[in-house]
Amino acid sequence: MERGEGAKFKKELVSKLLYFYFKDQKTKVSGDAVIIMSEMLKIFVIEAAARTARQASNEDARTADLDHFEKVLPQLLLDF
């Protein structure tokens, strides 16, 4: 993201995740695609966290709880 955060999905993890789910054993992933997928997953998580945080602060809560996440989940899944 724009503020250069530290944590991110490791390439190894991303490619293992994809290979874990591929139905066809012949399917492969190029190195570049893995890097971009790692960015994509990071955006997914940050988006989930940020929307949950916004929902929590809208409800004047100090901690983001499960019900805040549950409220933002449907729209999150529609956007990805």
């Binding site: 955060e5 530290g6 944590a7 991110k8 990071k42 998580v45 940050i46 966290a49 940020a50 949950t52 945080a53 916004r54 929590a56 602060s57 809560a61 100090r62 901690t63 983001a64 709880d65 499960l66 805040h68 996440f69």
Partner: peptide, 19 residues
């Protein structure tokens, strides 16, 4: 967990473990 921590610090709140 790492990413949520960063977002939490950014927005000034904590994420529960279940979240």
């Amino acid at each position: 967990g790492c990413l949520c921590q960063e977002v939490g610090e950014d927005k000034g709140l904590e994420f529960s473990k279940q979240t």
